[in-house]
């Protein structure tokens, strides 16, 4: 009977669900370590987990990794700030007036059809190989998801609330501040998460093309010397930074959209 089989304790049921979910990744890690130790997996193809860990420790200790992270984070911060300002600013212009929409939306829709990373050769010709093309690539990647989502968010605000504003005799500034912007905020935050994802991707691609500092530079350097351990450390750091910014946005969402919680509870 099914009830008896449900009652018989399986070895897994003693663990919390969280711990149970950790089992298979840990097993894979052990398998990877074993394959490396027995020579089945060559160091040239992929370094052993233990080697990666000790390399990470060394890289932190000698200051290579913190410095690389600092350079890359700075690139992301500048590129993101420029892209976010442009994306949100243009969405406000397009969203808040018909004239603005006609002026801004058609070129934005055309430009977003361009493959972002296909523009790299042009950017190198225009801006050389310094910081500028990296920042521009990042900013472009960040700007479009924010533009599209914020614009859609502004236009999606319930027109009946606009009528309330009219009856309450709110000024245009008050209408924008109390109704339009908060109403567009959920969409804007969706755009923010998308644009951060694209932002990190753009950083990685930009740093692969050429860089004399930063995480990409560290990884490229490691390739020259067949240091797969350093490459893996670099990838893991990209990973962690991406997850970190994503959880920051989620935190922001929870704080800014508390009014929705009534709906969920």
């Amino acid at each position: 009977m099914s009830s008896t089989s449900a009652r018989s304790p399986s070895p897994l049921s003693a663990l919390s669900p969280m711990a149970a979910r950790l089992l298979s990744p840990l097993a894979l890690l052990a398998l990877w370590q074993a394959a490396s130790a027995t020579g089945l997996l060559s160091e040239r193809l992929l370094a052993a987990p233990a080697t990666v860990a000790s390399t990470a420790y060394d890289l932190v200790k000698d200051g290579t990794l913190p410095q690389a992270i600092e350079v890359s984070l700075q690139r992301v911060a500048i590129g993101f700030a420029v892209g976010a300002a442009a994306g949100i600013g243009l969405a406000l212009i397009a969203g808040l007036s018909r004239l603005g929409e006609h002026a801004v939306d058609p070129p934005m829709q055309m430009l977003r059809a361009l493959p972002l990373f296909g523009l790299i050769p042009l950017f190198i010709l225009w801006f050389g190989i310094g910081e500028t093309p990296k920042i521009v690539l990042l900013a472009l990647g960040v700007a479009f998801p924010l533009y599209l989502n914020t614009f859609a968010g502004i236009r999606g605000v319930d027109g009946r609330l606009g009528e309330v504003a009219e009856v309450l005799r709110l000024s245009r500034t008050e209408l924008i501040r109390h109704i339009v912007l908060p109403g567009a905020l959920p969409s804007l935050l969706v755009g923010l998460r998308q644009s951060l994802g694209i932002g990190w991707l753009a950083l990685i691609v930009a740093e692969q093309v050429n860089a004399d500092a930063g995480l990409g530079h560290m990884i490229n350097d490691a390739r020259e010397f067949l240091r797969t351990d350093v490459i893996v450390v670099g990838l893991l750091v990209y990973c962690a930074l991406g997850l970190l910014t994503d959880s920051l946005v989620r935190l922001l969402e929870r704080r800014a959209l508390t009014w929705r919680r009534g709906l969920l509870n």
Partner: peptide, 21 residues
């Protein structure tokens, strides 16, 4: 005016809805 649906602004607390404008 009071509309058929209350049309409160969902992201403003009840008091802020009443005080709006």
């Amino acid at each position: 005016i009071a509309f058929q649906e209350p049309r409160l602004i969902p992201w403003k607390r009840v008091l802020d809805n009443v005080a709006l404008g």
